[in-house]
Amino acid sequence: MSVFNGHVGFAGYIQLVYVGVAALFVVGLHLMNSPATARRGNQVALTGMVIAVIATLVLMGHEGTVTTTGWVVLIVGSLLGSAVGLWAARTVQMTAMPQLVSAFNSVGGGAAALVAIYGYYDAESRGAVLGTTSVFTVLDVLIGAVTFSGSIIAAGKPSSGGQA
């Protein structure tokens, strides 16, 4: 939230887009109530995700504080991760899917923990650490790290042929 330092303006419009995205996620999950509409539900949720990422890139461009190295790091990182995810999702055996979902869940939790760690690091370097910041950081990192390690263990467990 550090980006939205009180002043709304442009970031406020992006925030509005995020609200719409949240609605798309809820609608998408709702469509998964029935096998007949479940695929559309997944597509609706995916649409929301694409919109969220585009809106974020627009916001980053508007802020204008992302360094060239920053852009390279983020773009290369996301694309590499996406490629690995796509490859794993396409090639995995149907029987090994639960383990793969667990592995995706794991890296998602890991990412959340890293974002929280950076949030604290950034706040500290600006001398803006509040009491609540510390509490939320600890909770966030703890939950993210537990998800990361727990899901890795879960990913290895039910497999009949060793994975992870």
Partner: peptide, 27 residues
């Protein structure tokens, strides 16, 4: 910042793309 950004975006990218693809395959 760059190292954290790289690892976090790598992880999250795998989560997003892999997650939707695998869900699509299941359905």
């Amino acid at each position: 910042g760059y190292v954290l950004a790289f690892i976090a975006s790598f992880f999250a990218g795998a989560n997003v793309v892999g997650g939707y693809t695998v869900t699509g395959r299941m359905l």
